Simulated scan of single mutants.
Amino acid sequence: MNAATLPIISMASLDSDDGLNKLRHAASEVGFFYLVDHGITRDAQQEYLALSRAFFQLSAEEKQTVDMIQSPHFRGYNAMGNEMTAGRLDAREQFDWMNEEQALPEQQLQYPWQKLIGPNLWPTTMPKLKPELTTLQRKLSGITVNLLQKLCESLGVDRNALDHTIGGQPYTHAKLIRYPAQESQQQGVGAHKDPGYLTLVMQDSQSGLKVERGNEWIDVAPIPGALVVNIGELLELASNGLLKATNHKVESPIHGVERYSIAFFMAAQLSATIPVLALPPELKAKASGPTTDPNNPLLTDVGNNVLKGRLRSHMHVTRKHYCDESVRHLLAKSFAYAATTDICGDCRA
């Protein structure tokens, strides 16, 4: 299927009713679209992807100095085989960073998700990585906040209807990702939906991202300069299922080719609880409620929903930082209503 069969949305068109209608259609019928005229030039994107390649070309020893195993906040480097999706290992390596914050002392933790709050890990051998990526983080955050407000407008509610869940800044999580070439097709990242409000993906020239539509998987081929946008589960929840969080996956490249991408996830603040928007009658009639995976239930409180995903994906970090008695007690209280007994096989947190 041709890449153009996914909608292409111009940010510049969203000041018009026609542009908002196209945005709503893309977000409700597909859940994925290309975004152009977003303010980050094609050349700037190539520079960020080159920076990503430079990071992954660091020696194994240099990358291990910022290994995620050191971070109870799930920041830093993951080598191949250290992240799981849908219960299977992903064939990729990555570097994760989030909002730069001060960690809370253990004795002040009231909720387990507060353990996610903390500083990022930055390699001392690559000093420009921190300023470049935090600048990119601010740019992408601005794009997602603006886009979220435009989506609210497209739903016939106040553009600021979800602003109270964001506060001064949204919760953000970003990844540099490298998919090494494999001898045969493998799971680069398994089929899943994203948990937040919105995801932006910056791709290099290699395909591999696939979106589920009906009974088939379609390629999301790179379009130079365009960002790929997808709707997250929290936005599906807030729209009572009108907007769609769509299954997607990445297949590993083969024949000596590598794939690089940068993924940016935006959600409400970790302390927020997601409301259901009061849609106008004609749209409310089309909203059938959010879909949910019984093996990975969606929680309306953002912090626990985000933490649940991290605990399942990064088992080595979970075992090291979330299995002591005090944290297990907090987990038991917060996840009493969710199927979380499989989060940590060693201690059944």
Rank of each mutant, 00 (worst) to 15 (best):
M1N: 11
I143A: 00
S184L: 12
S10C: 10
I177V: 15
E83A: 07
L283R: 03
A268S: 13
T300H: 11
F335N: 05
G208S: 08
Y77H: 07
Q185K: 14
D37F: 01
L58Q: 13
V228Y: 01
A338G: 05
H255L: 10
H255S: 09
A287C: 09
V157R: 06
C347R: 11
Y171N: 12
S207G: 12
F33P: 02
S207N: 12
P105S: 08
H192Q: 09
T199F: 06
L6E: 03
W217F: 12
P7R: 03
V250N: 04
I177D: 04
L277M: 06
L243S: 01
R42A: 13
P112I: 02
I166R: 01
P224C: 07
L227N: 03
E62C: 07
A221F: 07
R213N: 13
I274H: 01
A4N: 15
D43Y: 14
V189Q: 05
P224Y: 06
G156F: 14
S141D: 10
K130I: 05
H329L: 11
P222G: 12
N295I: 05
T292K: 06
A12E: 12
T165S: 07
H25T: 15
E282A: 13
N247E: 13
E47D: 15
N78S: 15
L279C: 03
M266W: 07
A349Y: 06
V257L: 12
H316G: 10
M11F: 12
P127H: 05
G167R: 01
S28P: 00
G76M: 03
L155W: 01
Y77E: 04
L121A: 08
L277S: 02
D219C: 08
D346K: 12
S52A: 15
Q102T: 15
R53I: 01
E100Q: 13
S261T: 10
W97F: 14
N21T: 15
G190R: 10
T135L: 15
Y48K: 08
E183V: 04
N247V: 11
R348Q: 13
R213W: 06
I218V: 14
G309W: 02
G196Y: 02
R88Y: 14
A336N: 09
G309S: 09
L198C: 03
K128Y: 12
R312A: 09
A3V: 14
L129K: 02
M202K: 04
S141L: 08
L279A: 06
V189M: 04
